[in-house]
């Protein structure tokens, strides 16, 4: 799939402001041509998470529009199309071992949402 390449730049960059986020839900940002789903969970530590927006099973850019929650404590988003779960920290699909979406390092610093280097 051609849409899940690495984000090229290694520098940190500002994605958006805190008030662009939606508490307990997701938004999508376009970064170096990649769609990144950013989730804001104000009660959690850390409060922001980012994974790719492309749903490899539903084959559409929709993960930012899923419902977030947990499975036995593991933070996940459920795809709005066919409801498979993706781990917010690793991008791993819970239902299918061989499916994984990219995960990104994001941080909330002051009012800014910052994207750091890609997770390994």
């Amino acid at each position: 799939m051609s849409t899940a390449e690495n984000i090229q730049s290694n520098e940190t960059q500002v994605i958006c402001q805190r008030n662009d986020l939606i508490a307990n839900s997701g938004i999508c940002a376009l970064i170096d041509g990649q769609q990144v789903a950013v989730f804001y969970l104000p009660e959690e530590e850390p409060p922001v998470y980012a994974i790719g927006n492309w749903d490899p099973l539903g084959k559409a850019n929709v993960l930012s529009r899923g419902i977030v929650g947990d499975i036995q404590g593991q933070l996940v988003v459920a795809s709005p199309l066919y409801k498979q779960h993706f781990d917010l920290i690793t991008g791993q699909c819970v239902e299918q071992d061989e499916i994984k979406v990219p995960a990104y390092n994001v941080e909330l610093i002051g009012e800014q949402v910052i994207l750091a280097n890609r997770n390994s």
């Binding site: 939606i22 084959k59 559409a60 850019n61 529009r65 709005p80 199309l81």
Partner: peptide, 22 residues
């Protein structure tokens, strides 16, 4: 309402039915 947004299925959040291509 802010406190209800995260509860809704995407269809309810966007007040429309999601189709296969998003």
């Amino acid at each position: 309402e802010e406190k209800h947004v995260g509860l809704q299925d995407t269809n309810d959040t966007f007040l429309a039915n999601m189709q296969k291509n998003g």
